[in-house]
Design a protein around this nucleic acid. Structure first.
Lengths: 146, 146
DNA sequence: CTCAGTGCAAAGGATTTGCATGCCG
DNA sequence: CGGCATGCAAATCCTTTGCACTGAG
């Protein structure tokens, strides 16, 4: 997805709830766009001198509310943030149990389709209304294997 | 799996690290065994008058260390605890975005197998060593749909 | 007896919030 | 101008920990 369109989608979603697409929020979205993987707030702050912690929390929360940002909680450490799937595409995560690092990956489309179909079937009759799924691989990243 | 064997497995695992299978720990395991779904510490405490919060946290941590209990963190709220998969079998979760409730469910074995195979293949070459996977369905539980 | 386990209360750490001020629309 | 956004610091909330005491082996 091209960068410009992400910005306009974000702007539009914010406008719908009478929120402004301020420079601080633009900066956060840009940081997440550049990130190769979901990042914690301390990581984001380090890459963005001048960003205030409380504003980061507040704005990421707003962006999450409008469906632009997704929060991932893997363990006791900091939460991690990434752009929502409708902006960057459906994908999954490799979660390192050693250091908490989270990387993105995708599975072949055919499997993804049969998975989705099977899940819908498995949930039928439970009264649960499914909106999406989450598939993570748990393991150890290269650095933590040594 | 029959109740007695869970107890003996837990006892054995604790013994290996010179820990005792005390009444408090037995109580926690029994509570998790009875639970229909992963529960938070407040939920467990409510069902177990006399259980101390700090002991619950401490003992669940010990039980997690020895691989008997699994901790699930779905959002900012309380963590949820369940018996580990090698005691109760591989399964997945329905996560309600409305109230945070988590229910168990399983998918057909054939799909589970092709999924596992595909994941191994997808991860090959990334340097990541996978040990397991996690598949959750996100949506809204019956109560939260109204 | 000895040492792990437990209770209680206080500490810790991530995240949130109140309030006064700044700034966009 | 009016109201959302921001900074700062204090407050919250879940979870962990120190310490003294109890209990199992």
């Amino acid at each position: 997805m091209d960068p410009g369109s992400i910005d306009s989608i974000v702007a539009e979603r914010l406008r719908l709830v009478d929120q402004r697409y301020t420079s601080g929020r633009r900066r956060l979205v840009a940081l997440l766009e550049d990130a190769a993987r979901p990042e914690t707030i301390p990581e984001l702050l380090e890459r963005a001198p001048g960003l205030r912690q409380s504003s980061a929390y507040r704005n990421l929360h707003v962006l999450e509310q409008v469906g632009v940002v997704h929060r991932i909680v893997t363990s006791g450490e900091h939460a991690r943030f990434e752009l929502a799937e409708d902006l960057v595409g459906h994908h999954h995560h490799l979660i390192c149990t050693g250091c908490g690092r989270v990387d993105d990956f995708t599975v072949p489309a055919p499997l993804e389709r049969s998975l989705e179909a099977a899940l819908v079937k498995a949930v039928t009759g439970t009264g649960f209304a499914s909106t999406s799924h989450r598939l993570d691989v748990i393991g150890t990243c290269e650095a933590c294997q040594r």
